[in-house]
Amino acid sequence: MIRVVLADDEAMIRAGVRAILATDEGVEVVAEARDGREAVELTRAHRPDVVLLDIRMPHLDGLSAAAEVRATMPEVAVVMLTTFDEDEYVARALDEGASGFLLKAADPRELIIGVRAVADGGAYLSPRIARKVIARLGGRLARAGTARGRVESLTPREREVLALVGRGMPNQDIGRALFLSEGTVKAHVSAILQRLGVNNRVQAAIIAYEAGLVGTDT
């Protein structure tokens, strides 16, 4: 069972997200928070697999809450709930260790896919957000050269793994897709992060989008 703490200051959004997650028998919302401070407290109390954080919340915003969760409870995956006009915050969220970005107005299936992906150790970028994220962060993440050039430094197998990381797949699923052990995939991912000069799978996923390894038209 994937246990989730949900944080949003709008009751209607919380009710909608809870209803969507309830359609998956393998996901359970264990607590709801109305602000960032409460989100951190409930995450500390329940130790969920995933915490879903709205970016704009009172008392403590979602980005600050994400930083506190990642610093004190690194085993909890953080997913940011965002809208298009909040894309300027994505760079900071990446630095705070967020594992996913979901658009509130996206297809409800994306919410479940994203939660499952990060709970399994993967990363997830909503495809509709990816176009905006790439536009905002392209220069920032490609400061050592173009994304395509950086990807060319990878081995063919590493490029295959990176493409699947870009699709939000966890190590176990990547292993099944490429007929590799989970340990081998983990070693490839570590090497990819080091070669690309990034800190986490979401940053690697963005480079995969930039380099054309993953489409953004879905």
Rank of each mutant, 00 (worst) to 15 (best):
S190D: 15
L102C: 08
L125I: 14
I134W: 13
D9L: 08
A19C: 13
V214S: 00
A163I: 02
D120K: 14
D87K: 12
E110G: 05
D35K: 09
A22C: 11
L94R: 00
V214D: 00
L193W: 07
E28Y: 04
R176C: 10
I55C: 02
M57N: 00
A117Y: 01
L53E: 01
A191K: 10
G175S: 08
V76N: 01
R56V: 12
D8H: 09
H188P: 03
V50Y: 00
V76G: 01
D85M: 10
V79S: 01
T155Q: 04
V17Y: 01
L42D: 05
E32R: 07
A130L: 04
G145E: 05
R109F: 08
G175P: 01
L196Q: 00
A39L: 06
D35I: 08
V151N: 04
G215K: 14
G36R: 00
L103W: 01
D107V: 10
G122L: 02
G166H: 01
V133K: 01
P108R: 06
V161P: 01
E158T: 12
G138L: 05
K104E: 10
R37L: 07
A91N: 06
E160M: 12
Y89L: 10
Y209W: 11
E88K: 11
V17G: 00
D49E: 10
I174Q: 06
G97Q: 03
I20M: 05
E10A: 12
V51K: 02
R56T: 13
A105H: 12
G16S: 12
V118R: 00
L94A: 02
T83W: 11
P156D: 03
R44I: 13
P58Q: 14
G145H: 14
P58F: 04
V30N: 01
T146V: 08
A191E: 10
G139W: 09
L53H: 02
V185D: 00
D107E: 12
E152N: 12
G168T: 01
D217S: 15
S181H: 15
G26Y: 08
L60W: 02
A91K: 08
R14T: 04
D87E: 15
R18Y: 09
L94K: 03
D107N: 12
V29D: 09
Q203A: 09
E110C: 09
H59Q: 14
L164C: 08
D87M: 13
G97R: 02
D120S: 13
R14W: 04
R159C: 14
I20R: 00
H46R: 09
A77C: 05
L52G: 00
V161F: 06
R109T: 10
L42T: 07
R128N: 09
G121R: 04
E110F: 11
G168L: 01
Q203P: 10
L213V: 04
A33I: 03
V78T: 05
R37H: 09
V133I: 12
P108W: 08
F179A: 14
D61R: 05
E10T: 15
G166M: 02
P108H: 09
D54R: 01
R131Y: 09
M12K: 15
A77N: 02
